[in-house]
Amino acid sequence: MELFNAGLDWYSLADKAIHGSKLSQKEGIAILEADDGELLPIMQAAFRVRHHFYGKKVKLNMIMNAKSGLCPEDCGYCSQSIVSTAPVSKYSMLDKESLLAGAREAISRKAGTYCIVASGKGPTDRELDQVIEAVQEITSTLPLKICACLGILKEDQARRLAEAGVHRYNHNLNTSKSNYPSITTTHTYDQRIETVKIAQSHGMSPCSGVIIGMGETNEEIVDMAYALRELDADSIPVNFLNPIPGTPLEGAKRVSPIRALKVLALFRFICPSKEIRVAGGRELNLRSLQPLSLYAANSIFVGDYLTTEGQEVTADHQMIEDLGFEIEICALSAV
């Protein structure tokens, strides 16, 4: 690969990242375009950064699909959107007992963060009340961090969630600003940026990530990483498109395992101190190379995703153990 042969050294990029220097776009693209024979040196360099900030600890997260389908948005990747014909469950916001049961399941899976996710453009007052009631009981009885993902937020909604004990708010950018109109038209990229900032301004840890495999260029992938660095997102879920039949992107080509690993390394280099999570599509796209992902990432989801199945939880626990890594136990104490 020309840039590598010209003297680009992955270990130098790792040192640059550790010391807080921003990689250039040329350097970022070089990671994505590197010869596949450079994969292991790239992953070793990414691990150098990951180990500096996180050692060998792995954070576990669990998703609860708290409201499914019934969404007026036209996101091309989503089986719950109004333009999808995929056969998914459709139900309104789960009651408090169901959300509490999910929290207890998260504990049994050794997850430190419980993610309450709802379809829709944004929460109604009634839906917000239901989530808040559940969050207050969960945080008073269980050692879990709570992440909410309820769509576009208003200032008062963000304030109420933070006061109820929500630790983190997720609102993914999903793709680059330039690619956004080809993926979604019912809301804008800037609205997503604004929601992340609103959540952050009310004291919730900002969580925002991407979906790789939606027609974006290498330059756009680097731009996504830059945007999340600029937002100062604490947690960055890196999803790989699962092209679900019945969605507009059903015919998209899967991301290859090697490309997926290069993307994870890129995000580690550009956002070195942040929680990089291998998220949706991990099992489908990384396949047998899943263990290598944790040399760049330090976090995974355990169990199923919103409408697709994940890997068996015991297999994830075994993968972490086999790597010589350690599950990070939530430091919160139940009240």
Rank of each mutant, 00 (worst) to 15 (best):
S178T: 06
E127Q: 15
F240Y: 05
E216W: 14
T141K: 15
K145V: 00
N174P: 02
N170K: 06
E220S: 10
A199T: 02
I138K: 07
V131P: 03
I198S: 07
E155C: 03
K121D: 05
G203T: 01
D129W: 10
Q191S: 14
I146V: 15
P245K: 15
M224W: 05
L173C: 01
I198G: 08
D223Q: 15
I236N: 05
A118L: 05
H202I: 00
S205L: 11
R192E: 00
N242G: 05
F240E: 03
N174T: 09
G213N: 08
V238L: 13
D223H: 13
S208I: 08
T139G: 07
A158Q: 04
T217Q: 09
K154C: 04
T247S: 11
R192I: 00
T188A: 07
L153A: 01
A225T: 06
A118G: 05
T186Y: 05
S119I: 02
E250N: 11
P243I: 11
S140E: 06
C149W: 10
S235E: 04
S140A: 14
R229F: 11
S201R: 09
T247R: 08
Y169A: 00
Q191H: 13
I132N: 00
I244E: 11
I183H: 13
P245L: 13
N239C: 11
G122S: 04
E137D: 12
H171Q: 04
K197W: 00
N172C: 05
L249R: 08
D234C: 05
M224P: 01
G246W: 15
T188S: 14
D129K: 14
E137Q: 09
G165E: 04
N218E: 11
L161F: 15
L150T: 01
T247I: 06
Q157T: 06
G165R: 05
A225P: 09
K121M: 14
R168D: 04
M204R: 02
R168L: 04
I198E: 07
N179A: 14
I244L: 13
I211R: 07
V196L: 01
A158V: 01
A199H: 08
L150Q: 04
G215P: 04
T188D: 03
T139A: 09
R229V: 08
A134W: 11
I152H: 14
E230M: 08
D223E: 15
M204H: 01
P181T: 02
S119T: 10
Q130H: 08
S208Y: 15
A134M: 12
T186R: 06
I212Y: 11
N242H: 07
D125Y: 07
L241N: 11
P181N: 04
N174C: 07
K177R: 12
